[in-house]
Design a protein around this nucleic acid. Structure first.
Length: 932
RNA sequence: GCGGGCGUGGCGAAAUUGGUAGACGCACUAGACUUAGGAUCUAGCGCCGCGAGGCGUGGGGGUUCGACUCCCUCCGCCCGCACCA
């Protein structure tokens, strides 16, 4: 009888469930630690071996911290609203709630098999009404807030209304929609008795309710507005910027087009600066911080207004190089820019409209791939240069993006390559404003060159010129310093069924948010999950539906779920302030880096709002994050000889003209194909013939690819758990390499890890499989193994290096086997040390040793350095009485051996003084330190 | 183009503060054992060389007594962003 993982794991799973071993509660006498995994979307395919990688690592860490005496919150749940369940519903008519329920059951089964120590009492599901009630409630709070730029935080809308009642909006410094499509310059729109300018409107108090609401809509942190959105016709919904990759939808890869639609948006732009600044406060990888910084895209510069000649219109541009303003030779507007139709002269009208239409027809993707093709059209209009008074022609061109800055640029061909190319193509002037610089071939963007032909900026370089020119622009009132962000407000409406209803009804144009008592607004039943014939979203099919017909995006529920785990059953609040204060930030967040611009940004955003409004006491959700790498599949290939049903082994395939086809990896063992199983796999292969190699085997070719059903390379954890046990799988996944790294899945090494666990088992059991632990006192050598292991495992876990933790355990077990050590004194602590990777096994052994109580509350063994005292690894080597270098040697070496080793460094020492040292003195480091 | 990361045996990798490079595991080789197991045990396993010895962490250079580690440069790979004004 050997290590019987099946019965051990079964037994402990039941034990944990019956005893609620992993249930946690708030306990003020203990320090808290919050370990969280990104919760999964329960897809129909179930878990593959890539999913658990991060779960295993965080589970190990959670156990470790629990052993160390921390009160550890380690929950799991499901991000259960989403597209696949809805698409499945459209195809089959099955309600997405049922699909989701089934998938969750499957996930749960798989997760349980792997022995995770989650507190399932705290499970959350975003699609559960008791959960999305609070998603809707948070939406309400955001709706009832505005962003005060003076206090630099969100405040309840009531504080804004008091300001309005007092002074109107004069002097109100709020974050507002910065969207040129609407073309309302809100900085000039005032309703106040104190305002004496031209645009004064009526007094706040005398306005109708509807008027008030429409004004407030411009201030709310979530607002309804006509915005240019990514419309995906194939999916029938709008998408947020982060859901679009290369002009196609991230899910499904369907084309996406730009469309003006009335939509809910979240004013994330108000938080742009804080989202950048607070990255400094969190322990995330540099790469993911950088992804967020790029996405927010802060750039410093100036906005400059150009008056259109002979009209009252003015064109505002954003530039990062206001210092080059004397090099402007034309302006370019995005073809969609609203002013285009208003300023274009009659002679140019038809050409400009043709260009606009052509641009409209181009998809975002075509436009991007057409980058090298310079195109544009003259509008016939001119603007006046604010300093020189020169006439500057206004062009349109699709190299100017509608969605960035103001959708208009001042073109400086001498300094910007795109402007240069445009000028060359259309024969526009290229004035040189750079001292001693040849710009006949290309633009020169350097900031170090002195300016010439630039009036009051002559002789200055960028750094000084920018300050000066902004000063002058402000004096003239036609420009100012400005920080521009690439980040856009986040579109919040989705024309879909399987999501949270937006708890808003309408009275005319005015949105009325539902009362708290009306929450949750339950997702209604519909006859079909498709849009109506009129193109209305699926919710329009619901009977007597009086709310908004859109639903919330997938990221709504996932932006705050980590808070709900703290207080999952609370019916009076999304989380009580007390519990939120106790558990606080997530101390360790484990998940994929692919959410860099989505979930991770939106959760930070919502956390900051909830912090500003005083619901929670921290403004960053995830203190430390580790991004596990993707586990790639290792596909197997068979080689069919063209036009036949003969398949040739990989090592002989070059003798034939072959076609590579995927073979299911379950038919392949160590790259050898089970030919009989292959014949029975798919009907088309029934009559296959094989050309085998010399050894009579059919060898498959391999390739590393993303795991996918169509490539037949998906490895489910279930099969491996069945074959080797959960502990082996867990250890093996950790042993594959650094958790952050992407790596191909390869089961070749799994035996080694399995054997390690068997070896551990044998330390406790004799050949008859009887527990055979002795109470003899451990020897010094044995204690040394133990304490070296404790130290190393502590160190490795504290630097989140799970793979070396497993290695260290293997070394320890090897050494104890060599010492034939089965002393209780050693094995008990060793068991706890190894338990993070082999929980079931450790606990089984623990019980067989007759220990009382639960392992999860047992203390992690203390490291005792005294056992390593004479095991000083670093010996300084002295020549001529001077310490020259250190060598690391094991203490088991005799003194003359050490000297011999040191002497081998003589050559190195020769470089020091040019001569061979006479004497080598070797002393332990510690003594040297004391002398010094 | 910009930004981030990486490059070590046949393979996955380790080396934590600049100090014995390749721990641990896989694969492989030879042997032992056996109630034949996906078992265990012993020995070997970076490259060249019979050997002494020499070489070796992508290439080249530098700092240092000493470099996988720090600096410069080139090459290669991965990831993110990209007509962002």
């Amino acid at each position: 009888m050997e290590y019987d993982f099946r019965s051990i794991e079964q037994k402990w799973r039941n034990n944990w469930r019956e005893n609620q071993t992993y249930k946690v509660s708030e306990d003020n006498s203990k320090k808290k630690f919050y370990v969280l995994d990104m919760f999964p979307y329960p897809s129909g395919a179930g878990l593959h071996v890539g999913h658990p990688l991060g779960y295993i690592a965080s589970d190990i860490y959670a156990r470790y911290m629990r052993h160390q005496g921390w009160n550890v919150l380690h929950p799991m749940g499901y991000d259960s609203f989403g597209l696949p369940a809805e698409q499945y519903a459209i195809q089959t008519g099955q309600h997405p709630a049922i699909t989701t329920e089934n998938n969750i059951a499957r996930y749960r089964e798989q997760l349980d098999k792997m022995g995770f120590c989650y507190d399932w009492n705290r499970e959350v599901r975003t699609s559960d009404p008791s959960y999305y009630k609070w998603t809707q409630w948070i939406f309400k709070q955001i709706f009832e807030s505005w962003y005060n730029k003076d206090t630099d935080k969100a405040e309840p809308i009531s504080s804004l209304i008091s300001k309005f009642e007092e002074n109107g909006n004069y002097g109100v410094n709020a974050a507002m929609e910065d969207d040129w499509y609407t073309k309302i310059d809100k900085s000039k729109f005032f309703f106040s008795e104190k305002w004496e300018g031209d645009f004064s409107d009526t007094d706040w108090r005398s306005m109708s309710n509807e008027q008030k609401e429409l004004i407030l809509m411009n201030y709310r942190l979530t607002y309804l507005a006509d915005s240019m959105v990514n419309w995906c016709p194939a999916l029938g919904t709008v998408l947020a910027n982060d859901e679009v990759k290369d002009g196609r939808s991230e899910r499904g890869g369907h084309p996406v087009e730009q469309k003006l639609m009335r939509q809910w948006s979240m004013r994330i732009t108000a938080y742009a600066q804080r989202l950048i600044d607070d990255l400094e406060k969190i322990d995330w990888s540099e790469s993911i911080k950088e992804i967020q910084r790029n996405w927010i895209g802060r750039s410093e510069g100036a906005s400059v207004k150009f008056m259109v000649e002979g009209s009252a219109y003015e064109i505002e541009v954003f530039t990062t190089r206001p210092d080059t303003i004397f090099g402007v030779s034309f302006l370019t507007l995005a073809p969609e820019h609203e002013l285009v139709s208003l300023i274009t002269t009659t002679e140019c009208k038809s050409a400009v409209e043709a260009y606009q239409n052509a641009a409209k027809l181009k998809s975002e993707r075509d436009r991007q791939s057409d980058v090298k093709n310079i195109s544009g059209e003259f509008t016939g209009a001119y603007v006046i240069h604010p300093f020189t008074g020169d006439k500057v022609p206004v062009w349109i061109g699709d190299y100017v993006l509608a969605g960035y800055g103001t959708g208009a640029v001042m073109a400086v061909p001498s300094g910007d390559q795109r402007d240069f190319d445009f000028a060359k193509k259309f024969n526009l002037p290229i004035p040189n404003i750079l001292e001693n610089t040849d710009i006949s071939e290309k633009a020169e963007p350097s900031k170090e060159i002195k300016l010439v032909n630039s009036s009051f900026l002559n002789g200055m370089v960028y750094k000084d010129a920018v300050k000066k020119v902004i000063e002058e622009l402000e004096k003239l009132g036609c420009g100012k310093g400005k920080i521009n962000y690439r980040l856009r407000d986040a579109v919040f409406s989705r024309q879909r069924y399987w999501g949270e209803p937006i708890p808003v009804s309408y009275e005319g144009e005015v949105p009325m948010v539902a009362a708290d008592s009306a929450l949750p607004v339950i997702l209604p039943e519909v006859d079909k999950y498709l849009p109506t014939e009129e193109g209305e979203p699926p919710l329009a099919r619901a009977q007597d539906w009086k709310y908004d017909r859109n639903t919330m995006p997938g990221w709504a529920g996932s932006s705050w779920y980590f808070l709900r785990y703290m207080d999952p059953q609370n019916n009076d609040a999304f989380v009580s302030r007390e519990k939120a204060d106790y558990w606080g930030q997530v101390d360790l967040y484990m998940g994929g880096a692919e959410h860099g611009t989505g979930h991770l940004l939106y959760s930070r955003f919502w956390t900051k709002i909830l912090f500003d409004l005083g619901f929670i006491g921290f403004n960053e959700p995830f203190k430390k994050m580790i991004n596990q790498g993707m586990i790639l599949g290792r596909s197997s290939f068979v080689y069919r000889i063209q036009g036949t049903n003969k398949f040739v082994s990989f090592d002989k395939k070059d003798e034939f003209d072959t076609q590579a086809l995927h073979a299911d990896i379950s038919l392949v063992d160590n790259d050898v194909l089970d030919t009989e199983a292959f014949k029975n796999w798919l009907p088309e292969y029934r009559d296959t013939e094989f050309i085998l190699n010399e050894e009579g085997k059919y060898i498959c070719g391999t390739e590393v690819e993303k795991m996918s059903k169509s490539k037949y390379n998906v490895q489910t954890p279930d099969e491996l758990v069945e074959k080797f046990g959960a502990d082996t799988l867990r250890c093996y996944e950790m042993f594959l390499g650094p958790v952050e790294q992407s790596k191909p899945w390869d089961t070749k090494g799994i035996n080694g890890v399995h054997n390690f666990l068997r070896k551990l088992w044998r330390l406790y059991h004799n050949q008859a499989n009887e527990c055979s632990v002795s109470d003899e006192t451990a020897t010094k050598a044995e204690l040394k193994v133990l304490h070296k292991t404790i130290k190393k495992i502590n160190d490795d876990l504290n630097r989140f290096s799970w793979n070396t933790v497993v290695s260290t355990s293997m070394i320890a077990v090897n050494e104890l086997t060599d010492l034939k050590c089965n002393k209780r004194e050693i094995l008990e602590p060793l068991t706890i040390l190894i338990s993070p990777y082999a929980p079931h096994l450790a606990e089984e052994l623990w019980e067989r040793l007759g220990m009382k109580g639960s392992v999860t509350v047992a203390a992690w063994p203390e490291f005792n350095a005294s056992y390593l005292e004479d095991d000083a690894f670093d010996y300084p080597v002295s020549f001529n009485g001077k310490t020259r270098f250190f060598i690391s040697l094991p203490t088991t070496m005799e003194k003359d051996e050490i000297e011999k080793a040191a002497l081998s460094h003589e050559k190195a020492a020769q470089y020091l003084d040019g001569k061979t040292p006479k004497k080598v003195i070797v002393v332990p480091k510690k003594i040297v330190n004391i002398v010094a």
